[in-house]
């Protein structure tokens, strides 16, 4: 039965850089199957290696070209701005340095990031483990599926007031909210990925007389891992949002608190530095995730690049 509507597919939210890498692989020809664009092919001729290096450089230039142009445009457009809402970028960067690099505001990062780490890792683990359990116990899965689905689609920020009522305004409710957001996408994607594993693989596992634990560990989990990764990525994004809003409502610390407090005090340059910091955190975490994912799932992206040939 289709007990839980399918969640993020492997394709969803997959990084565009992945597409670029596989397209480059295709352009490089058969000898470069699955190779990344770094050009460290042991078998390649020097000429070919040089060309690969040039292509890699081109990719990097193209990738950072537009962001630099955008920043320059922002700088020029805002240079003489007298609007209080949109202060000059030079001022923002100056304040950013004073507040976040050498100044006091970086202390706000500690509570934010530690809550995020605990909540996200905890929620993800709960999600994966419950996903495996529900997959092993189809009767339980079917019986609980409406409840699980309800909790998945329930917009998690709506729970914030309830968690304030239960836990007070301390750290616990922030961690609980972040974990709650991370659990459901991970759980449903784990389940969905496992259900998508080819039946032939189960038959092979059976023929090889693998124990159930062994089957899950070495057949089902790897088979489902691209989808689990998609769930973890979706969970990370929700977790970051929940981290920020849990700090914006009834809180006394963290980067979300800093941004909203600056806004309330009409310290708009400081507010912009907070927005910038949050953008940096989101981007860095996302790229970290994608980096780890590509390392762990190198086999998957390699085979997909081959398929796309």
């Amino acid at each position: 039965m289709r007990d839980l509507a399918s969640v993020e597919t492997q394709r969803t939210g997959a990084p565009l850089s992945g597409v670029i890498a596989s397209e480059i692989d295709i352009a490089e020809g058969a000898e470069y199957a699955g190779a990344t664009s770094t050009g460290s092919q042991p078998g390649g001729s020097p000429k070919r290696r040089k060309r690969t290096a040039r292509k890699a450089l081109m990719t990097v230039v193209l990738a950072i070209g537009l962001p630099i142009i955008l920043l320059v445009v922002w700088w020029i457009l805002s240079a003489n701005s007298h609007s209080p809402y949109f202060p000059p970028l030079s001022k923002i960067l100056d304040q950013f340095w004073k507040l976040w690099i050498i100044g006091p505001a970086k202390a706000q990062l500690v509570p934010s990031l530690s809550h995020l780490a605990i909540g996200y890792v905890g929620g993800s683990l709960i999600g994966i483990i419950s996903g495996v359990l529900l997959w092993r116990l189809p009767a339980v899965r079917r019986a609980t599926s409406p409840v699980v689905y309800f909790l998945y689609v329930l917009p998690a920020p709506a729970l914030l007031p309830a968690l304030i009522a239960i836990f007070g305004i301390g750290e616990m409710r922030q961690i609980a909210l972040i974990a709650f957001g991370a659990i459901w996408p991970t759980l449903l994607n784990t389940l969905d990925g496992m259900r998508g594993v080819d039946q032939v693989k189960f038959d092979s596992a059976k023929a090889m007389r693998l124990s159930p634990v062994r089957t899950v560990w070495s057949v089902v989990l790897p088979g489902a891992s691209p989808q689990i990764a998609a769930g973890l990525r979706a969970g990370l994004q929700v977790s970051i949002i929940l981290m920020v809003i849990s700090e914006m409502v009834a809180s006394t610390g963290g980067i979300g608190y800093f941004i909203l407090q600056s806004q309330a005090n009409l310290a708009l340059v400081a507010m912009w530095t907070g927005i910038l910091m949050l953008a940096i955190i989101g981007t860095v975490l996302n790229y970290l995730f994608v980096g780890v994912e590509h390392r762990v799932l190198a086999w998957f992206y390699g085979s997909r690049a081959l398929e796309g040939r």
Binding site: G13, S17, Q263, L268
Partner: peptide, 27 residues
């Protein structure tokens, strides 16, 4: 060309949590 030039920028914008801009949007 357009796709490769814009991919990184799009990803950066995608990773900015939308709630970050909430205070300025409210203002």
């Amino acid at each position: 060309l357009a796709f490769r030039a814009s991919a990184a920028t799009i990803e950066v914008f995608k990773s900015i949590p939308a709630v970050a801009i909430l205070p300025i949007v409210i203002l």
